[in-house]
């Protein structure tokens, strides 16, 4: 196959996110998370049938009464993977969900981070994602550090891996360097295009042997499962049902 099958933007992002989910783990997403919810259910219906899945906006996938129950589960180390989106992400994988501009006189104030400052420490694997890849999002230094990937000395931290997924590329945090490294470029984009749209110098992953890897194509199989089992499940369980109807195509 030389060309990716035709799909919606949401389908494309959900497939990439679902590949980060592992079998036998507990994976979760927060509120207002249509794309991660699709990704979790796609993983459940394909490569992670023994996983536990928590979708806070879904009555069928939210086992909790109040928000603290979810945070306690994460603090105990029982949540393996969590998806976080942010308005700014910097080269150190610090992210910003609070404001744009000068923190003392911001241009824009956002609703804030809810519990992600805790989850960034407590959850072993964090997937940061963004539905755009541009210099406004990928900045050298975030305007406000909502949560930092680096910890003060001696700090208890359970997080081990940070992955960033965008419409153009996949990045991984190198703990050794304290920097995001480019892991792969999605089909249809070049390394130069990714660099052009990133506000800091991209470092190639040590695994890439001097050349940027290409993200594996979205497959027909992934799209078929998404458009049949996952779409139906989302509608039946009232898990972003309306969005599933409009953003996931019919098989």
């Amino acid at each position: 196959m030389t060309q990716a099958p035709d799909c919606t933007f949401e389908e494309f992002m959900a497939v990439l996110l679902s590949r980060e989910v592992r079998d036998f783990e507990t994976s979760a997403c927060g509120a207002l998370s249509f794309i991660p919810a699709m990704a979790l259910l796609l993983a459940e219906a394909s490569h992670a049938p023994n996983g536990d899945f928590i979708i806070l906006d879904s009555p069928a996938y939210n086992p909790f009464v109040g928000p603290k129950d979810f945070h306690y589960l994460a603090q105990r180390g029982q949540l393996d993977l969590f998806f976080i989106s942010a308005i700014q992400i910097d080269r150190h994988a610090d992210f910003n969900l609070h404001l744009i501009g000068d923190p003392d006189a911001p241009d824009v104030r956002m609703p804030g981070q809810y519990g992600t400052g805790l989850l960034y420490y407590a959850v072993p694997r964090i997937v940061l994602f963004r539905t755009r890849h541009d210099r406004r999002t990928f900045v050298a230094k975030v305007d406000f550090v909502s949560a930092s990937a680096s910890s003060p000395k001696g700090m208890a931290r359970r997080n081990k891996e940070v992955v960033v997924i965008t419409p153009m590329a996949r990045m991984e945090l190198s703990r050794e360097l304290g920097l995001l490294e480019l892991a792969s470029v999605h089909p249809g984009y070049t390394l130069e295009q990714v660099q052009e749209n990133t506000g800091f110098e991209l470092v190639l992953s040590g695994k890439s042997e001097g050349e940027a890897r290409v993200t594996p194509f979205v497959t027909e199989e992934e799209l078929t499962v998404l458009r049949t089992v996952v779409k139906q499940r989302m509608i039946e369980t009232d898990t972003y049902g309306d969005m599933a109807r409009s953003k996931i195509r019919d098989p």
Binding site: G117, L118, A147
Partner: peptide
């Protein structure tokens, strides 16, 4: 609590300490 260290959320807060 677990977390928040290194962030600007607790930088100027006297009610959060390491």
């Amino acid at each position: 609590t677990l977390g928040y260290a290194g962030s600007d959320v607790i930088k100027d807060r006297e009610d959060f300490v390491l």
